Simulated scan of single mutants.
Amino acid sequence: MKEHFSETVRVKGRGDTKAKAFADALNHVQGSVMKSSPHILLRIEPQDVQVIQARVQVKKEAFLFFFLKREKQMFSVELDVSVNVTAINMDKVDFIPQ
């Protein structure tokens, strides 16, 4: 009934800091695993993280083209996350009709 399996999912995240970009990407791990698995998930444990792509986009802004100039940064990451999953296989559960 209870099964253990490993899976690797690719997730993307964006944020105005590096930490927010990584946190956004890691928040998408659960949803990616749930989409690919028909089982009821009990536990998802990340084992390894590999950075596939990490980018920073810099935009220059100014008020009325001359005043209050500043640079705005947007970070984006793409990660491969290896996870160990504990799940309940619903096919192995016997339901008794009443």
Rank of each mutant, 00 (worst) to 15 (best):
A87I: 03
M74E: 15
Q53L: 12
K2A: 07
E7D: 09
V77T: 03
F95L: 14
Q98I: 10
D16Q: 11
V81S: 02
K35I: 01
H28K: 13
I88G: 02
G31N: 09
A87D: 02
I52F: 03
F95K: 08
D80F: 02
K18M: 13
V9S: 02
L41C: 08
L42Q: 14
Q98T: 10
K59V: 04
N84D: 12
V93P: 06
R10Q: 11
E45F: 05
M34G: 06
M1G: 11
T86A: 09
F5L: 09
V85Q: 01
K59M: 09
D94E: 15
M1V: 06
T86M: 11
H28W: 08
D16K: 11
V33M: 09
P38G: 06
S37M: 05
A25D: 04
Q47H: 01
D80Y: 02
G15C: 04
V29R: 02
K92V: 01
L41I: 15
G15S: 03
N84R: 11
D16W: 10
D24K: 04
V81T: 01
R55E: 14
F22L: 14
L41V: 07
D91W: 00
K35E: 09
K35V: 02
V58E: 11
K35P: 00
A87W: 02
V11S: 01
V33W: 04
K69M: 06
G13F: 02
I96N: 14
Q47W: 00
G31K: 05
L26M: 15
A21K: 04
Q57L: 05
K72L: 10
D80V: 00
M74K: 13
H39T: 09
E61R: 12
T8W: 04
D94A: 13
Q98C: 01
T86V: 15
N27E: 14
F63W: 13
V29A: 02
K92A: 10
L79C: 04
V93I: 15
S82L: 13
V56G: 08
T17H: 06
S32G: 07
L79G: 00
V81L: 02
R55Y: 01
L26Y: 05
T86C: 03
V93D: 05
F5P: 01
H39I: 00
P97G: 07
D16R: 12
N84H: 07
R10E: 14
K60M: 06
S32C: 09
P97T: 12
R70K: 14
A19I: 15
S32L: 07
H39S: 07
T8M: 06
N84T: 06
V51N: 01
F67I: 14
V83L: 03
E78V: 10
F66D: 06
G13K: 02
A87C: 08
I96K: 15
A23D: 10
L26Q: 06
G13N: 01
I44K: 03
L79P: 01
P46I: 00
L26K: 11
D48M: 08
E3I: 15
A23C: 01
K59T: 12
N27Y: 08
R55D: 13
F75M: 06
K59H: 14
E45Y: 04
K20E: 15
V81P: 03
F95V: 15
K12H: 08
H28T: 08
D91V: 00
T86I: 13
L68H: 03
M74V: 13
D94R: 11
K12G: 02
R70V: 03
K18W: 10
E7N: 08
M1S: 13
D24E: 11
Q98A: 11
I44D: 00
